[in-house]
């Protein structure tokens, strides 16, 4: 990390490329303060402070991922449990998964306008398939003796999905959720290319338009760092919820 920073600093200091291509670390650092404060009557960047951009983006990621996770678990359960649904929905999920988000974003904008709805829809559609696929696989992989044991202990057939299938699929479902949040992260910048301010993606987009490379890099760093933080948090949740992972 430090080494990388040193190389960056050296490259920038050597002025091999103009400032527009490779801004100095100091410039990015300075932008961190400028975008985080009110200065000369101007508030942050494009009228919003850095953390406001970030929070709005995180809110979109959170909402899109939440819907994606709920929809993904429901779809995954159905795909994994009901053979007819598997043949119908399975290929559809794969189809959607292979589409690049930007491709259907245009369609979403036509349908839902340029405000929040298309952005949330985009993140939802991007986040759902990983969860659905992971859940479906895990559901089909549930050891039949767990089901047998439960039935011998008096569980009814309809109680199995909630009592046995879901909890025993939980480790894989959580992995799916981590992937989904990652996908939502990579998609949010695309979602914010249209009317994305406030939002980190919108900020990067505006900065690009005015050749403010230091702001672009700052945006990238902020997204990466917050993503790292959130994944660490999800891993913590994972250890809390499925401590038996790899041991049972």
């Amino acid at each position: 990390m430090l080494l990388l920073l040193a190389i960056w600093w050296a490259v920038a200091a050597a002025h091999i490329w103009p400032e527009v291509f490779v801004p100095a670390p100091g410039a990015v650092w300075e932008q961190l303060w400028l975008t985080s404060s009110v200065h000369e009557g101007r508030r942050g960047y494009s009228g919003y402070l850095l953390h406001e951009h970030l929070l709005v983006s995180l809110g979109r990621i959170g909402l899109g991922s939440l819907y994606g996770v709920i929809g993904g678990i429901a779809a995954g359960l159905l795909i994994g449990l009901v053979p007819t649904v598997r043949t119908l929905l399975g290929p559809l999920v794969t189809f959607v998964r292979t589409l690049p988000p930007l491709a259907y974003f245009s369609l979403l904008i036509i349908w839902f306008g340029i405000d929040e709805p298309p952005k949330i829809w985009l993140l939802f559609i991007a986040a759902m398939p990983p969860v659905a696929v992971a859940t479906a696989e895990a559901v089909r992989g549930v050891h039949e003796d767990y089901l047998n044991a439960a039935r011998s202990l008096g569980a009814r057939r309809w109680q199995l999905p909630y009592r046995i299938v879901l909890p025993s699929a939980l480790p894989e479902v959580i992995t799916g959720i981590r992937v989904a949040v990652g996908v939502a992260y990579t998609t949010v910048v695309a979602a914010e290319t249209v009317n994305g301010v406030p939002g980190i993606g919108g900020m990067i987009r505006d900065a690009q338009r005015y050749n403010q490379t230091d702001v672009v890099i700052l945006g990238l760093l902020v997204i990466g760092a917050s993503g790292l933080l959130i994944d660490t948090f999800l891993q913590f949740i994972e250890r809390l919820l499925v401590p038996w992972r790899g041991r049972a």
């Binding site: 003796d145 767990y146 047998n148 044991a149 046995i164 025993s168 038996w244």
Partner: peptide, 17 residues
Amino acid sequence: PGPDRGVVFQQPRLFPW
């Protein structure tokens, strides 16, 4: 299967969750 027949499996098969 039914609760009138209790089963102890050759492997314990406890629910890990």
